[in-house]
Amino acid sequence: MLTANQRLVRKMVVVLFVIGLAVAFAGARHQQTQVAAQVTWQDVSATLQDVEIAKRDLFQSMQEKTGAL
């Protein structure tokens, strides 16, 4: 059987764990928002150029495998 003090300590540990979890989530979310707020259309444009290159590379590989398309 647990004493009243032990039950109290157990409750406090659980409460502290939940608070820590909430703080960690809030921090991660804040960091994500900050990173998201820094992305510009110039960055999107650069990524889209990479997508175009990756697309061309894929087509080339497929052409080599399937013959002339």
Binding site: T40, W41, D43, T47, D50, V51, A54, D57, L58, M62
Partner: peptide
């Protein structure tokens, strides 16, 4: 103006970039 909608579009395009690269690997 430089940022509105850019982060979401960027995430989606990066997913497509990874998909294209992965597909190329699979084809090879």
């Amino acid at each position: 103006s430089q940022r509105v909608g850019a982060a979401t579009t960027q995430t989606l395009l990066k997913t497509n970039l990874a998909a294209f690269q992965q597909l190329k690997q699979r084809v090879d």
